[in-house]
C-alpha cells in the first residue's frame, strides 16, 4: 500500500507539472486554433531565468525562501515578456494566413529559442540550486513525499484555481471566453481581440515558467533542451484531456503523470513512455475529442 501511495504521489507531482504546461497549449488552441510548439521553450527560458537570478541573489546574500520567490517572480515576468513577444513576432502577422503557416512559424520559433539559449548560455547541463528548503514537518514522510513535491503540488493547484477564477469571474476572463466562442462576433461586440490573445499568451507563459522553476529546483539540473520533452508530454496531456478545454488539460496532465508513474513502478521504467502514449491512443479511440473535450462542429 505504501508503494502504491509513493507511486501515486510521484505521478501526481509530475502530472501537475504536465498540467501546468498543458494549460498554456490548450488556452492558445482554444482561442486561435494554433498549437504553440514554442511553448515548451518558454518553460525552459523560465527555468534559465530563475537559475540566473538565483545565482545573482545568492551573491548578494539573499537566502532560502526569498530567493525562491524573487527568482520565480522574475522568471515569470521574463517568460511573460517572451510569450507576448513570441505572439507579436511569430503569430500575429499570420493571423489570417492559412492554418499551416503559423504552425510552421511555431516550430521555427521553438528551434530558434532552443538554439538561442544553446548559444547564449551553454550546451551542457547546468546545476540548478535547490530553492525549496526542506521543511521540518515533512521529515517523517520524506521517503514518500519531499518538500519539493509538496511545493509543486500546492503551487500548481493554486495556479489552476487562480486560472479558473480568472476565467470565470473577471472581465478579461469573460472576454477570453467570448473570443474562444467566436472571434468575429467578439470583435463586433467591442472586445479587443488582439489584446485578449496577448493576455492568453502571457497567462500561458506565466504558468509554464512556474512549472520550469519548480521542475528545475526539483531535479536540480537544466539545459536548453528540457523544453522539448516537457512540451511533448504537455501537448499529449492537452490532447488527452481534450484540446481547447481548460479543466481537460489539468485532468489530462494528471492522468498522463499517473499512467507513467504506475507503468514505471509496476512494469518497467523502460516502458513508461509506451504506457503514456498507449493511454493517449486508447482514450482517443474511445473518445476522439479527448476526456473532457466536446465534439465541435466545424464552424461555417
Amino acid at each position: 500500500m505504501d508503494y502504491f501511495l509513493e507511486l501515486f504521489l510521484s505521478g501526481l507531482t509530475r502530472g501537475s507539472i504536465y498540467a501546468l504546461i498543458a494549460l498554456g497549449y490548450t488556452m492558445v488552441y482554444g482561442i486561435i486554433q494554433l498549437i504553440n510548439f514554442a511553448h515548451g521553450e518558454i518553460y525552459m527560458i523560465g527555468a534559465f531565468v530563475a537559475l540566473i537570478v538565483s545565482g545573482v541573489l545568492t551573491i548578494y546574500g539573499f537566502s532560502g525562501v526569498s530567493i525562491l520567490i524573487l527568482a520565480a517572480l522574475i522568471a515569470v515576468i521574463y517568460a511573460a515578456a517572451y510569450g507576448f513577444t513570441l505572439e507579436r513576432i511569430a503569430y500575429r502577422p499570420l493571423r489570417n494566413a492559412p492554418r499551416l503557416s503559423p504552425l510552421i512559424s511555431a516550430i521555427g520559433m521553438s528551434l530558434f529559442l532552443q538554439n538561442y539559449v544553446l548559444l547564449a548560455q551553454t550546451p551542457d547541463f547546468l546545476p540548478f540550486p535547490q530553492l525549496v528548503p526542506s521543511f521540518e514537518f515533512m521529515e517523517p514522510i520524506a521517503h514518500i513525499m519531499g518538500s519539493a513535491e509538496l511545493v509543486i503540488l500546492v503551487t500548481s493547484a493554486l495556479s489552476m484555481v487562480g486560472l479558473t477564477l480568472l476565467i470565470k469571474y473577471t472581465r478579461i476572463g469573460k472576454a477570453m471566453r467570448a473570443t474562444q466562442q467566436d472571434m468575429i462576433m467578439a470583435r463586433l461586440s467591442g472586445i479587443n481581440v488582439d489584446r485578449v490573445i496577448s493576455v492568453t499568451f502571457i497567462i500561458g507563459s506565466v504558468l509554464a515558467a512556474i512549472g520550469g522553476v519548480l521542475v528545475g529546483s526539483y531535479i536540480g539540473q537544466i539545459n536548453f533542451y528540457i523544453g522539448f520533452m516537457a512540451g511533448v508530454k504537455a501537448f499529449t496531456a492537452a490532447v488527452l484531456g481534450g484540446i481547447g478545454n481548460i479543466p481537460g488539460a489539468a485532468l489530462g496532465g494528471l492522468v498522463l503523470g499517473l499512467a507513467e508513474s504506475f507503468a514505471a513502478g509496476y512494469v518497467s521504467s523502460a516502458y513508461e513512455d509506451v504506457f503514456a502514449f498507449g493511454v493517449l491512443v486508447l482514450i482517443l479511440i474511445l473518445r476522439p475529442s479527448g476526456l473532457l473535450g466536446k465534439a465541435v462542429k466545424q464552424k461555417v
Binding site: S10, T13, R14, V215, Y218, A230, K233, A264, G265, S269
Partner: peptide, 15 residues
C-alpha cells in the same frame, strides 16, 4: 531496468 534520458522525474525508479 532502463530509464528514459531526459525524463523529468526518476522517483518511481527510486521507489
Amino acid at each position: 531496468e532502463g530509464i528514459t534520458p531526459g525524463a523529468m522525474d526518476y522517483s518511481a525508479v527510486v521507489q
